[in-house]
Design a protein around this nucleic acid. Structure first.
Length: 352
DNA sequence: CCTTCCCGCCATGAT
DNA sequence: ATCATGGCGGGAAGG
């Protein structure tokens, strides 16, 4: 039915790296707090599946945090140095303690972070206080990405090749097939990180083999992702590339579920802005509320989230503009935490 | 040819 | 059952 649209399909403009750039350009604003997956997919013109990739990788660096179903929160670049030092510490402590265990036809990752870095969201609402041993989920992209950066942070050698990383991240895989799959993921991750300038693609001097060099958080060119200066709208004025190409031209499947997708993508576009608006209101409210409350007063028993020292350290490294931004994000995070806590308490008491 | 890695099928888990 | 999540690898673009 439809023609092939524009000539020359380019694989490059659909790469994860580009997607991430657009993602950051879209959400790296001081007035963004919540990120809806559907909203992101719609605005960026890609299918949902890709957003999962982006968000998982970004989360490994602390740029975003999972808030709940369909919802992530923007944490910002100010968070990155903190997370990186946590990762480094962790990586050093366990000396690359990723011990893959090959059992017959299955690969099982041993242990895994018993203490997750950056613990902000206490896992959605409704969480029974049972210390269930879970961590079934911790198995990939997110973890792989973290281990990848640990390699850079904990290695004395700053040039790392992808199959070197593969070798290091799983234990001498005998199966070449398994390795191929893993390398694919590493390509994805590397693309994302290099598009942020966290790492840089080069090659080994002698061998000419492609490799990556660590550039570090200070090299992250946040400016590139600051979007337009001053206040402007998130209007669809700048439709991103081949918007929705994938979604609708590829009706290869006669499954009968086309209508479902369509429906979903239609009704989502304005949800996020509404939420964002509400959050802004919270923000100013909280600001005035917290003023007299925050300094050492601590009337609450438990301290949610993180240690104050760390936050303060981070603050020292930021410009005044970003300090404000950072503080706001922290406050929103705390507010969210308290809200969640209160909600679960309320539910529990209400029920019993 | 080999490297890079997008795409989307489909398993798995939550509701 | 439907929906959310994301592992996984085929196979095509890029070099």
């Amino acid at each position: 039915m439809e023609s092939l649209g524009r000539q020359s399909y380019s694989r490059k403009e659909k790469s994860l790296g580009v997607l991430v750039s657009n993602f950051l350009r879209l959400y790296n604003r001081d007035d963004v707090d919540l990120i809806g997956l559907d909203d992101a997919a719609g605005k960026l013109g890609v299918e949902r599946r890709r957003i999962y990739d982006v968000v998982n990788i970004l989360e490994s660096i602390g740029l975003v945090a999972r808030r709940g179903k369909n919802q992530y929160s923007w944490r910002g670049f100010g968070q990155v140095p903190t997370v990186l030092s946590l990762l480094k510490e962790e990586g050093m402590r366990e000396k690359f303690g990723i011990i893959p265990c090959v059992t017959n036809s299955e690969m099982v990752l041993y242990d895994q972070v018993r203490e997750e870095p950056l613990k902000l969201s206490p896992d959605d609402q409704e969480n029974s206080p049972s210390p269930k041993l879970d961590c079934k989920k911790e198995k990939s992209l997110w973890v792989l990405a973290q281990n990848f950066v640990k390699l850079f942070l904990c290695s004395d050698d700053d040039l790392i090749t992808l199959d070197g990383a593969t070798k290091a991240l799983l234990n001498v895989s005998q199966d070449p097939m398994n390795m191929r799959t893993k390398v694919r993921r590493l390509y994805d991750i590397a693309n994302v990180f290099s598009s942020m300038n966290l790492i840089e693609k080069t090659h080994i001097p002698e061998t000419k083999k492609p490799a990556y060099r660590w550039l570090g958080p200070k090299a992250i060119s946040e400016a590139r992702f600051l979007a337009a200066p001053l206040c402007d709208r998130i209007e669809p004025k700048k439709r991103v590339f081949g918007t929705e190409i994938t979604n609708f031209t590829t009706t290869k499947r006669a499954k009968t579920d086309c209508s479902k997708d369509q429906k979903q993508y239609e009704s989502q576009n304005n949800t996020c802005s509404v939420i964002k608006q509400e959050q802004c209101d919270y923000k100013s409210a909280v600001k005035s509320l917290v003023g007299p409350l925050s300094p050492a007063g601590t009337s609450k028993k438990t301290n949610p989230g993180k240690s104050n020292n760390q936050s303060i350290d981070v603050l020292e490294t930021l410009s005044s503009t970003h300090k404000l931004q950072y503080c706001n994000h922290e406050l929103i995070g705390l507010l969210g935490h308290y809200t969640d806590t209160w909600r679960s308490w309320h539910e529990e008491f209400g029920r019993k």
